[in-house]
């Protein structure tokens, strides 16, 4: 029993130490941003691999999520004769919740795990160490552009997800199930607020972008430099990022829409 409590304590201490390392790491990454202004090429290359390469899964998922919402929403609303509100139902659920959250989860799986694995492998093959010995700070040269690219990509991807999703709902609701075209858009426009709904959704995805990319680059950088260590860092990235996104989503939702 005593041994169990001791282990609990040891685990707690090591988790706190990791949190401290993660925060120091973040500060160093932020210190690397000014250097990026002089080297925009580094950021562009990362926007490619973090943002553009995630586009496909985001568009396809957004389309299907919107179509499913259209179908489910229609079946529920038609019982109340309120199928004209389909546009509102689809738009609000996507813009407020599903857009930012599903994008963040997909992003963690697609780009986050790739970032963690790439950085972990660079560490395991002594590339980071080699850079240090060439008097190049790997946090500035490798981590900072990747972090910034993730932070920029997330809201853009979430916006694309939301827009595609709403058109997916439109396709199912209006084109297949016969909801009135004008009602779909006008009800939506009447109920969806630019600041309360859309801006808050963007704020959510900015927060998620920050946290998910932070977890990914830190887990990669902090990985034990062996193939096992890298694979565990990749797994942890996805798991921690998912927890962080869902937990933060609750907190943010309570703050934004809770009054």
């Amino acid at each position: 029993m005593l041994e169990f409590i001791r282990q609990l304590g040891r685990g707690g201490i090591s988790q706190f130490a990791k949190l401290g390392r993660a925060n120091l790491f973040m500060l160093k990454v932020l210190a690397g941003f000014p250097g990026l202004l002089r080297r925009p090429g580094l950021l562009v290359a990362q926007l490619w691999s973090v943002g553009v390469l995630s586009l496909m899964i985001i568009v396809v998922s957004g389309l299907f999520v919107g179509m499913v919402l259209g179908l489910q929403g229609y079946n529920t609303l038609v019982d109340f004769g309120a199928e004209e509100s389909l546009g509102v139902a689809v738009a609000l659920s996507i813009v407020r919740e599903l857009g930012p959250v599903v994008t963040a989860l997909l992003f963690a799986g697609r780009a986050g795990s790739a970032l963690a694995a790439e950085i972990g492998l660079m560490k395991a093959t002594e590339q980071l160490s080699g850079m240090e010995m060439m008097a190049v700070d790997p946090i500035h040269r490798v981590i900072a552009p990747r972090f910034l690219a993730g932070f920029i990509s997330m809201p853009l991807l979430a916006a694309i997800f939301s827009a595609v999703g709403i058109y997916g709902g439109y396709f199912v609701g209006v084109a297949l199930l016969g909801v009135d075209d004008g009602a779909y858009w006008s009800q939506m426009q009447a109920k969806v607020d630019l600041f309360d709904d859309i801006l808050n959704g963007v704020i959510k995805s900015l927060v998620f972008g920050w946290v998910v990319t932070w977890i990914a680059v830190f887990e990669g950088y902090d990985a034990i430099p062996t193939s096992e260590g890298v694979s565990r860092a990749t797994t942890r990235t996805v798991v921690y990022a998912a927890f962080a996104v869902l937990g933060l989503d609750f907190v943010l939702t309570a703050l934004m829409f809770g009054d």
């Binding site: 492998l121 660079m122 093959t125 002594e126 590339q127 160490s129 080699g130 850079m131 240090e132 010995m133 060439m134 008097a135 190049v136």
Partner: peptide, 28 residues
């Protein structure tokens, strides 16, 4: 500044895997 005057050859080579040979040598 001191490290710029030291070269180190790692056991694995530690070449940057996303750059060509030319870009690796040009890196520093």
């Amino acid at each position: 500044a001191l490290r710029k005057r030291m070269g180190m050859l790692f056991q694995s080579g530690a070449l940057l895997t996303d750059l060509t040979v030319f870009d690796n040598v040009a890196f520093p």
